[in-house]
Design a binder for these strands. Structure first.
Ligand SMILES: Nc1ncnc2c1ncn2[C@@H]1O[C@H](COP(=O)(O)OP(=O)(O)OP(=O)(O)O)[C@@H](O)[C@H]1O
Length: 745
DNA sequence: TCGGGCGACATTTTT
DNA sequence: TGTCGCCCGA
């Protein structure tokens, strides 16, 4: 590790900073994460700090893993094990001391869906009208309170029933021996506050604490840090206020901007050289972010030679955006560059669809990050629920989920009765599954419930001290889950079956990677997992993800798509805030845009579409206001005026990279597993103008209209209002009508 | 009890 | 456009 060669003087100073708090407030691509990584390596390698005495916090599990890998490479030895997200850290801490807070060390971690199920139980028990008090709303209140470290009955709740709901919900969580996500932080704080001995143990242990992406910490997380790190502690925080994009989740920039007040002795280091991007990319991003008023001005320059100009494409619709992405991918391939060097970034997950379709049609391998996670699939959740019951049969949420999967003749009514019986005995459902406690049930129901309890007990015995993989296998076998799928006629059963096999592989893979084959370890991993984790850099595929997921990453080439009013900035950020809490939402959208642009190393392509299908309706939106500040050097492709009937944009487009597109004749390959790259086989061809194609798809087809009824499409043409159809209605005769108002049959 | 069918509803962003 | 919840008939 040669610090002089690999770091600039400021970075080096930060890495060498001897002791006391350290704040690095610096712009995108200035090497903040690099500094943290090097500093950890330096502390361990040069200063002899025991790895176990270093705590490093990252924003995602993936970032944590990458940091660990990099430190290991620098060090040539094992990295500190306390490199994780706040949540993973909290889980680990609580696991060790759970008894102090009234939980067992085998507590479960409930995710949003589990929490919702539990919440529904609570509202039902409270007799709250779900119309008037939606569970999601109540849980949002609870989460907000928890983020502000308010326990039940400690305020932080806005409206009446939510407060009582919080208390009962929390009580139920405890009885289930489970924590929800925000409890991981809140209870960690509580643990350290209420038990000074524990606090001082960890204060002593963590000689050094380092936090990446500090601009996105919420009050509970910051509190946790402040507990661990008294004012003179070796706390190193790193961030960029221009990249604060999680205020909607409770993150507060003032933590970073006010850091010097809370840690008065802190050293402040500024990093001003950007090592990631070309001058063009940097200039563009800087101009755009300069549109914000509430920000810390930062200088950012680059010594890199000029690269390709930033491009801005005006396109007709989202399908054209998809084709643009395909074109970028194919020309990378022609140049012999890896597809993994290209990322498509967008504001909302829903936008991925158009890109996926285009990539599928043209056989370009791609990887979608986020959206529906593997572990959110119903069959996987069912299997995981069984696994969790092995570890903790008190989890009513899991028990109720699977007691009738596969169908065992235990329906809603019986389940409700079981809940009541357990409540009456003041115990959990599993504990009430005995002959005498169920005596109130009719014979057949009682038998079924008891045999389920027997099944669980047998499984528990059998899986005692077995590896996670083994548990998965046995659960799937003994519960009859696989048999249920095998005998199912339905189309989806096959896919589900494969997904469950995949779960076993995942358990195996995790065991190998982590070196811990236990069920407990696997379950914890699964609970904290996000979809980002599936996406390892090695896949030779284009990456598709939201701007939020892209934070901290970098790609040679970035397509930032959907730069339209209403999308970026998102329309919900444009609405005047009713309660004053979302002020500055627009500035956050701009920061999001900045984050996206600054992911690009060499080439940045921006695009917007004049019209976009949303829920099947067609929407038209003007280009994003963020484009107003683009510098002059941006190369604009496609008419800046809304294209009326002309196809200018397309002609220009298809000439562009010298790559021509055409769909393959054979039908597209079967639906890929999300998050999996697929092999590809694209054939060069020619792009048909989009407008024409739309028409082709309609002509000769039957459509239905609310008042005119059924009819045959005779002709179609693209107008500025959308696609206009000439339809021969069976009853009403020939009409000219916008495609928006009819349904294809 | 269970499955299919149908209508309502929804899209910000995620640890 | 797709999912989820609800209702109904078997
Ligand atoms: N001194 C340096 N010499 C060479 N490359 C560097 C140097 N500092 C940083 N880099 C490179 O610049 C890129 C950006 O660094 P890094 O990701 O650490 O920046 P960052 O400030 O964390 O970025 P962001 O805030 O945008 O996520 C990385 O590829 C990194 O390897």
């Amino acid at each position: 590790m040669d610090l002089d060669r690999e770091l600039n003087p400021e970075q080096k100073a930060a890495v060498l900073h001897p002791q006391g708090p350290l704040l690095i407030l610096a712009g995108a691509g200035s090497g903040k994460t690099r500094v943290i990584t090097y500093r950890i390596a330096h502390l361990v390698g040069e200063r002899g700090v025991p790895p176990g005495n270093i705590l490093a916090v990252t924003f995602t599990n993936k970032a944590a893993r990458e940091m660990r890998e990099r430190v290991e490479r620098l060090l040539g030895a094992e990295a500190p094990s306390w490199i994780s997200t706040f949540h993973a850290f909290g889980a680990r801490l609580l696991r060790r001391h759970a008894e102090l807070l009234g939980y067992s060390r085998d507590f479960l971690i409930y995710d949003e869906d589990d929490a919702r199920r539990l919440g529904r139980e609570v509202t039902k028990a409270m007799g709250l009208d779900p119309q008037q008090y939606p569970v999601e709303e109540l849980l949002a209140q609870v989460e907000r309170a928890k983020r502000n470290l308010k326990g039940p009955g400690e305020g932080g709740i806005r409206f009446g029933p939510a407060s009582a709901f919080y208390a009962r919900y929390q009580e139920r969580l405890r009885k289930n021996d489970a924590l929800d996500f925000s409890d991981l932080i809140r209870l960690s704080c509580k643990l350290l506050c209420d038990f000074p001995a524990v606090l001082s143990e960890y204060q002593r242990r963590f000689e050094h604490v380092l936090v990446d992406e500090f601009q996105d910490t919420d009050p509970a997380q910051y509190r946790l840090l402040r507990l661990l790190c008294p004012p003179e502690a070796n706390l190193c925080v790193v961030g960029d206020d221009d990249q604060s994009i999680y205020s909607w989740r409770g993150a507060e920039v003032r933590h970073i901007l006010g850091f010097a007040q809370d840690y008065p002795g802190c050293r402040v280091v500024k990093l001003e050289q950007n090592y990631r991007s070309t001058p063009q990319v940097l200039e563009t991003a800087s101009r755009v972010i300069a549109g914000n008023r509430e920000r810390h001005e930062k200088t950012l320059w680059t010594g890199a030679p000029a690269g390709a100009p930033v491009e801005l494409y005006a396109l007709s619709d989202e399908r054209a955006e998809g084709e643009l992405a395909v074109r970028l991918a194919l020309s990378r391939r022609e140049r012999g560059e890896k597809l993994s060097g290209l990322a498509v970034l967008y504001r909302t997950n829903a936008q991925s669809r158009a890109f996926e379709e285009a990539f599928r049609v043209f056989g370009v391998p791609y990887l979608v990050v986020g959206g529906v996670r593997f572990f959110d699939r119903a069959e996987i959740r069912d299997a995981v629920a069984y696994l969790r019951l092995l570890q903790n049969p008190k989890s009513d949420v899991d028990l109720l989920r699977v007691i009738n999967v596969p169908p065992r003749g235990i329906g809603d009514t019986t389940r409700e009765r079981l809940s009541e019986i357990a409540a009456r005995h003041g115990c959990q459902i599993f504990e009430s599954l005995t002959e005498e406690r169920l005596s109130g049930l009719r014979r057949p129901e009682r038998e079924k419930a008891l045999s389920f309890a027997a099944l669980l007990r047998a499984l528990r015995d059998e899986c005692q001290n077995k590896s996670a993989v083994e548990c998965v296998r046995r659960v799937l076998e003994k519960t009859g889950y696989l048999k249920m799928l095998e005998s199912s006629e339905s189309e989806q059963a096959q896919g589900r079956y494969e997904n469950l096999q995949e779960l076993a592989s995942a358990a195996q893979e995790f065991a190998t990677l982590s070196g811990d084959p236990s069920l407990a370890a696997f379950l914890e991993h699964v609970s904290l997992l996000t979809d980002l984790d599936g996406a390892r850099g090695e896949a030779e595929a284009v990456t598709l993800m939201t701007l939020h997921s892209a934070k901290g990453l970098e790609f040679d080439e970035v397509l930032l798509a959907g730069l339209e009013e209403g999308l970026l900035p998102h329309r919900r950020s444009l609405k005047e805030d009713e309660d004053g809490t979302r002020r500055g939402a627009l500035e956050e959208e701009r920061r999001l845009c900045y984050v996206g642009m600054t992911r690009a190393r060499k080439r940045l392509v921006l695009s917007y579409a004049w019209q976009r299908a949303v829920f099947g309706r067609v929407e038209m939106n003007p280009p994003s206001r963020f484009l107003d500040l683009l510098p002059g050097g941006v190369r604009r492709v496609g008419g800046m005026e809304e294209p009326a009937e002309d196809e200018e944009a397309f002609e220009e487009l298809s000439d562009d990279d010298g790559v021509f597109l055409d769909a393959e004749d054979e039908p597209p390959p079967p639906e890929p597993t999300r998050g999996r790259a697929r092999p590809s086989a694209a054939t060069p061809g020619r792009v048909r103008p989009k407008t024409d194609r739309d028409g082709q798809n309609w002509i000769g087809r039957f459509v239905a209209h609310d008042t005119f009824g059924r009819g045959l499409v005779r002709a179609a043409c693209q107008t500025r209002l959308g696609l206009k159809l000439t339809v021969d209605f069976e009853d009403a005769g020939e009409k000219t009508i916008l495609a928006d108002y009819v349904k294809r049959l």
